[in-house]
Amino acid sequence: MNELTLTTPTLLFSAVSLILLAYTNRFLSYAQLVRTLKEQYVKEHSEVTAAQIANLRKRLYLTRNMQVLGISSLFFCVITMFLIYIGLHALSVYVFGFAILLLIASLGLSIWEIQISVKALEIHLQDMEN
């Protein structure tokens, strides 16, 4: 195995930063959707709106967990860079591996959240068909 240098975690650092930006944008759109659904639900207690609210709740929690795992991955990337800087190369390899595992978990939750989002759109499409 090649020696881990500062360049490797730096590359992951920039990728995770972009992913976190996407997660934040997703979260902000959910916040707006929650406000809209609340107004709809107050006016009319429909089954479709109730289903959307339940679906959105799952998506919000998944997005929060995606963000936590992504931020944790970024945190351990920074720790990896510090460990390389102070010369603890053996430890830095394990910490960097852990950061990659956290990123994988975050991306896995993202896939799950996308599948739930598709179900939310299916609820709208079924409502329009009826």
Rank of each mutant, 00 (worst) to 15 (best):
R35I: 14
T36M: 10
T36F: 13
L37R: 01
L37S: 01
E39D: 03
E39L: 11
E39H: 00
E39M: 04
Y41E: 03
Y41W: 05
Y41F: 14
Y41M: 05
K43P: 00
E44F: 07
E44D: 09
H45M: 08
S46T: 08
S46W: 03
S46P: 02
E47Y: 11
V48G: 02
V48W: 06
V48C: 05
T49D: 02
T49H: 00
T49F: 00
A50E: 10
A51Q: 11
A51M: 11
A51V: 07
A51H: 12
Q52S: 05
I53S: 04
I53N: 04
I53T: 04
N55Y: 01
N55D: 04
N55I: 02
N55K: 01
N55W: 01
L56T: 09
L56G: 02
K58C: 06
R59P: 05
L60P: 03
L60R: 08
L60A: 15
L62H: 06
R64Y: 15
N65L: 14
N65M: 14
N65A: 15
M66Q: 11
M66D: 02
Q67G: 15
V68Y: 10
V68T: 13
G70F: 04
G70W: 01
I71C: 09
S72Q: 08
S72T: 13
S73W: 03
S73L: 05
S73R: 06
L74N: 10
F75I: 12
F75V: 14
F76Q: 03
F76L: 12
V78G: 10
I79D: 01
I79F: 13
T80K: 01
T80C: 06
M81V: 12
M81Q: 08
M81T: 07
F82M: 13
L83V: 00
I84T: 04
I84V: 07
I86C: 08
I86F: 07
L88F: 15
L88I: 13
